[in-house]
Amino acid sequence: MTVHRDAIDEHIIAELTADARIPLVSLGAKVRLSRNAVRQRIERLERTGVIQGYTIIRGGSSPQERVSAVLFIDRADRMRGAEVIAQLARIPEVVKCDILAGDLDLLVRVDARSVERVQEIWETVSAMPGVSNTVTSFSLSTVIDRG
């Protein structure tokens, strides 16, 4: 379903990305809409799948202590492998998933609290029906981060 988004929708999405708990009154002031108009837009963005959920990032480890990894995933059936993506979406540490052209199917970015947690995620992904192979690489350091 193609959803028309205007500059206000994009501004709302950016503000919610920065702080998903921003009060509607504050968000409305930032985008120059009433609280109710902002609520209606957010509900529409959720209903149409533009906003698919909100997440919690647990404290206790600073961003410098977190572990980043990239999983390259081959699916057994590229054209009917949507269930793999749906299962990946349920893993909170999966922060990005791209469908690739070429030899590999998916590129998945994982930000976790520990190497052990990345291993748990790898084991979960490797055991998913529809996954035929995975390759995992750990990030040693981040030198450019525009996210």
Rank of each mutant, 00 (worst) to 15 (best):
A86V: 09
I51G: 03
V3K: 06
L24W: 07
R78C: 04
I85L: 13
L88M: 05
M128I: 08
R5L: 15
Q87T: 07
S139K: 12
V3C: 05
A101G: 12
R5T: 15
R58S: 12
I57M: 11
G60M: 08
V131P: 01
I56H: 13
I73N: 01
E120P: 09
A7E: 08
I13N: 04
I56M: 13
P23M: 11
E43A: 14
T142G: 08
L140M: 10
T136W: 03
G28R: 02
V118G: 03
S26E: 15
A101C: 08
L88A: 02
V131D: 06
A7D: 09
E65C: 07
C97W: 02
I8P: 01
L106A: 07
V110E: 00
L106M: 00
E120C: 08
E65S: 13
S114G: 07
A127T: 10
K30W: 04
R44V: 00
A82W: 00
V125Q: 05
D98V: 13
A82T: 15
I57C: 11
R5K: 10
I73D: 04
S34N: 01
D74Y: 13
V94L: 03
I91N: 02
A86F: 08
P129M: 02
G59R: 10
R80A: 14
R35M: 02
D9R: 00
T142N: 11
E10R: 04
C97L: 02
V94Y: 05
S61M: 11
A37D: 07
R44Q: 03
V131K: 01
V94A: 07
E15Q: 13
A82Y: 01
I121N: 01
E65G: 10
A69V: 08
L33V: 04
S61F: 15
T134S: 06
Q52M: 11
I13E: 00
Q40Y: 04
L24P: 04
A101I: 08
V110W: 05
D145A: 08
R47N: 09
G147D: 13
I51M: 06
A7R: 13
G53M: 07
I73S: 01
L71N: 06
A76D: 14
R41Y: 02
A86T: 12
V38M: 01
R44G: 00
I144M: 09
S68Q: 15
G60P: 11
S126D: 12
I85D: 05
G81E: 05
Q87M: 10
